[in-house]
Nucleic acid binder design. Structure first.
Lengths: 122, 122
DNA sequence: TATACATATGAATATATGTTCATATGTAGG
DNA sequence: CCTACATATGAACATATATTCATATGTATA
């Protein structure tokens, strides 16, 4: 039968389909990859950062441009750009006093495209 | 010139490329869409939920299966499944006492595929 | 070198969120 | 009906995180 009693600390259910569990466990990506994916989505999962990324999909922009576009403080934008920088999603170049940011990733466009489709699709 | 002084509450910078800002503003998706995207990514942006979704990419599973797979409490899994339910990312069917969950979305596979590529790619 | 300006950053605060614990709900079987 | 079991849920707690405020850093220019 497929109902096998397993002794685990956390789950004392009797109805465990251990064959399914084992199969899925074998096919799942490595824990580290999954953790990295969660981190990536966490970076995407903020309204301000979504707007910044969408803006940078089209154009390179300086910090002030972005602050103006989103009607937010320079400080708030700068903090968020640091998050995006640390996630290596944006790159920047300095031109005098002005720092220009742009996207540094090939996959972001696809991911955001799919996501836009998703939220538009209902 | 492109340096135009704009009076805004939040940004008092002098170097605003207002042509760029206007262009990007015109091309950006609607605020509501961007907010929905952020919400979607927020749901994806948790290690536990990433693991649940990845598991359900392959197989339909009951709550207990998932708890066993992730070695977490039934309660924790149930709470997270509720989040996924409210985001309409999973559907469920009841069979006696057991509730089986599966993915309820076409785009998730693509988004997760791209993201896995992304994190594997460096 | 003194000032102005664009950006970065540390600390503080407020808010959001994930897990645990206890318990409720719903269903099958004796 | 009473028990067992799978799942759901509310409250509490701990932790993470986004913005603000004040200030530091770095660069150009008078």
């Amino acid at each position: 039968m497929e109902n096998v009693k397993e002794e685990r600390d956390t789950c004392r259910c009797n109805v465990i389909h251990s064959d399914i569990v084992d199969k899925v466990k074998a096919e799942m990506p490595a824990e580290e990859r999954l953790a990295q994916m969660a981190e990536l989505f966490k970076v995407f999962g903020d309204f301000t950062r979504v707007k910044i990324i969408c803006a940078l999909l089209d154009e390179e922009m300086c910090v002030c441009d972005i602050a103006s576009l989103l009607d937010m403080s320079q400080s708030a934008i700068s903090h968020q750009l640091r998050v995006l920088r640390h996630a290596r999603l944006v790159k920047y170049r300095r031109e005098g006093r002005v720092v220009y940011y742009s996207l540094d990733d090939e996959h972001v466009k696809n991911i955001f495209g799919q996501s836009l489709l998703h939220v538009s699709h209902r």
